[in-house]
Simulated assay, not measured.
Amino acid sequence: MADDVPYLFRGVMPVETPSSVLVSSSKYLNNPRLREWLAMILLRRNGPDMPPPAEMYEFMGILDELRDYDRIEQMITDERKVNPEFDAWFAEGFHSTYTIEDFRQYDPGSLGGIFYTWITEGDYEIQITPWQEPKTQLEFYNLRAGQTHDFEHILTGGGFNFMGELVPYWYRLTNIFKHIKDPELAAELCTIYIFGSLRYTVRTILHYPQVWMTAVKCIEQGMKVGQASDALFMKKLEPAFHLPLEEARAALGVREAVFLDTHNEGMFWATDGKEQLLREAAE
């Protein structure tokens, strides 16, 4: 009888199939590589044998298997017909070829100067994926997303650490949906960010609850900036490199951004809590 079925389990309809393997209406659930990757990035503790950036490198190969590139290209083309700003951005097709040394010229408090300090002191590289001339609209979008990501940290207020990553992630997860008319296209453009952010949400609350509220604060800020700001992901940032940070934000239409210092929390997360344990032992 229906009354004997637990309330939360009501409505479940068993599906019969001759298949001997998992079959689902979701292409994501059907992919065994993605299922394994998700289990790893959601449930594991952090360790030096698998740095978080390597997780996303693996994910990009999985995403390639899942994407319908022809459909994405058509959605971009259709969006351009109804979204003049989006169309103008693609029509111009602007992308940069700068090097780290090009930023030495900028004053310390400018957008370019802050970037230069963070990049050189952190021993980062500007180009995290091999350079190639974009041949499709999606390739252009991905190229500019890679070129502007570090500046989005600065402009949205997210520090260059693993907790700080949540700020630009969630800025994009809201800002893109605000400025793209087709929600399906917006979702395709945000797939990387929603999967990437899962590492800093699920893993944090499971293993590093000491910094969970920092993660919440970063997500809140990213959403606030994304909802309040112009389409930053389509802006040409290069003309603002010389401007003081607040002037650069104003020129680019970035609003509600403040710097969140998450260095200690990011170190705690990255070192599996060992950094705090060592500090407490020293005291």
Rank of each mutant, 00 (worst) to 15 (best):
67 R>H: 07
47 G>C: 10
80 R>S: 15
62 I>Y: 02
48 P>G: 02
43 L>S: 15
44 R>A: 10
71 R>Y: 10
29 L>S: 08
68 D>T: 04
60 M>V: 07
58 E>N: 11
46 N>D: 05
62 I>Q: 01
74 Q>N: 15
65 E>N: 01
52 P>V: 11
21 V>F: 11
59 F>L: 13
59 F>P: 03
68 D>K: 03
54 A>D: 15
64 D>Q: 10
40 M>K: 10
63 L>R: 14
53 P>M: 07
72 I>W: 00
41 I>P: 05
77 T>L: 15
32 P>I: 03
47 G>H: 14
42 L>W: 14
53 P>F: 00
22 L>Q: 09
45 R>S: 12
20 S>V: 11
79 E>L: 09
40 M>H: 06
31 N>R: 03
60 M>G: 01
53 P>A: 00
47 G>D: 15
80 R>W: 10
44 R>N: 01
69 Y>D: 10
76 I>K: 02
78 D>A: 14
33 R>C: 04
35 R>N: 13
53 P>L: 00
71 R>E: 11
35 R>L: 12
35 R>Y: 05
29 L>W: 09
35 R>E: 06
72 I>V: 08
76 I>H: 05
31 N>T: 01
37 W>K: 04
24 S>Q: 09
40 M>R: 10
49 D>M: 10
29 L>N: 06
80 R>T: 04
78 D>N: 12
37 W>S: 02
47 G>T: 09
23 V>H: 03
30 N>L: 03
60 M>T: 03
56 M>R: 05
45 R>T: 12
28 Y>K: 07
42 L>Q: 04
77 T>R: 15
43 L>C: 14
26 S>A: 08
57 Y>R: 08
74 Q>I: 12
37 W>M: 07
60 M>F: 07
34 L>K: 02
45 R>G: 13
61 G>S: 08
38 L>F: 10
78 D>K: 05
22 L>A: 11
70 D>S: 07
79 E>C: 06
56 M>Y: 09
24 S>W: 10
64 D>I: 00
79 E>K: 03
32 P>D: 05
35 R>T: 04
32 P>M: 05
57 Y>S: 06
50 M>V: 13
62 I>R: 02
33 R>S: 14
21 V>L: 11
46 N>H: 12
21 V>H: 09
43 L>V: 12
36 E>Q: 09
60 M>P: 02
65 E>H: 01
66 L>E: 05
29 L>T: 11
49 D>W: 14
68 D>P: 04
57 Y>Q: 04
62 I>V: 08
55 E>W: 05
37 W>T: 01
46 N>W: 03
41 I>R: 12
60 M>K: 01
71 R>I: 03
50 M>F: 15
24 S>R: 08
75 M>C: 01
71 R>D: 03
54 A>I: 13
55 E>H: 02
19 S>P: 00
77 T>N: 11
63 L>G: 05
24 S>A: 15
24 S>Y: 11
30 N>C: 07
51 P>C: 01
64 D>A: 08
63 L>K: 13
61 G>P: 00
50 M>K: 12
44 R>I: 08
21 V>A: 09
73 E>H: 12
23 V>L: 13
26 S>K: 01
35 R>F: 07
61 G>T: 02
34 L>Q: 00
59 F>H: 00
21 V>N: 03
40 M>F: 07
24 S>E: 03
20 S>Y: 10
49 D>L: 10
